[in-house]
């Protein structure tokens, strides 16, 4: 007999095999569907420490599950699945699989900080949301946010040349985030520049866009900065 009420079971828990032999009995056909149990079989107690290394997550261990964060939450009012209290609990016990079920909404925190100001134990739930989002980004669980892509492009150019080339930052940012290069506002801005700005300035801008000059006496500054940033990251994340 097949399982009739499959809609009541999470899809990922239904296992169907074309050919299935259990204890020497061929159960292919109608009996070929199995349901994996819902039981949680272990904690990952190191996960809490991982999240505590990200800025904002330091106080997650203080939580006693009163729910003040969730009931004050701006996003919870929009989406009942947005539940900081619950994610903090999962973080504490290291129930990562449960947490990742909500990976596509955790980043939606708008940082209104109502939770921060209401939390009776000073957990700073907004910080925990940020820490979780950063952890998921670094682990490649979620895509990099546009802001992160922009920051990286900006920083790469600074490290290389001690300066940024506006047009190149924009061009690369649009490319990496899959946006049109010919944005309406950009086209309009260039039109106006052509109309109003002196030729000399336009010429220099154009030249810089092609030549990518370095800031004077930039020397090894970029390498030193990169090394410092790397050391800081390693010091924090191990």
């Amino acid at each position: 007999m097949a399982i009739h009420e499959k809609s009541l079971i999470e899809a990922e828990r239904l296992k169907t095999a074309d050919h299935l032999v259990i204890d020497g009995v061929d159960v292919s056909g109608h009996w070929n569907t199995m349901i994996t149990p819902r039981t949680l079989c272990d904690y990952d107690e190191h996960f809490e420490k991982t999240i505590q290394k990200y800025g904002g997550g330091e106080n997650v261990h203080r939580c006693w599950q009163c729910g003040s964060c969730t009931n004050s939450c701006t996003m919870y009012a929009q989406n009942v699945n947005f539940n900081p209290r619950y994610w903090i609990y999962l973080t504490r016990l290291g129930l990562k699989d449960e947490l990742l079920k909500d990976k596509d909404i955790i980043w939606q925190c708008v940082s209104c900080n109502r939770c921060t100001h209401i939390c009776p134990r000073d957990v700073r739930p907004e910080g925990v949301m940020k820490a979780l989002a950063h952890w998921m980004e670094e682990e490649g669980i979620t895509e990099k946010s546009p802001a992160t892509v922009f920051d990286e492009e900006f920083w790469d150019q600074i490290a290389e040349r001690g300066r940024i080339e506006d047009s190149e930052v924009l061009k690369n940012f649009f490319q990496k985030t899959g946006q049109e290069l010919t944005q309406d506002w950009l086209v309009e801005m260039i039109k106006r520049m052509l109309k109003h700005l002196p030729f000399k300035h336009l010429f220099r801008s154009g030249k810089n866009a092609v030549m990518h000059p370095r800031t004077q006496s930039w020397g090894r500054t970029g390498e030193v900065l990169k090394q410092y940033v790397q050391e800081q990251k390693e010091a924090i994340h191990g």
Partner: peptide, 12 residues
Amino acid sequence: EDTLVKRPIVIP
């Protein structure tokens, strides 16, 4: 049963 996760637990 972990009351807050609403899931059965079997933890070593």
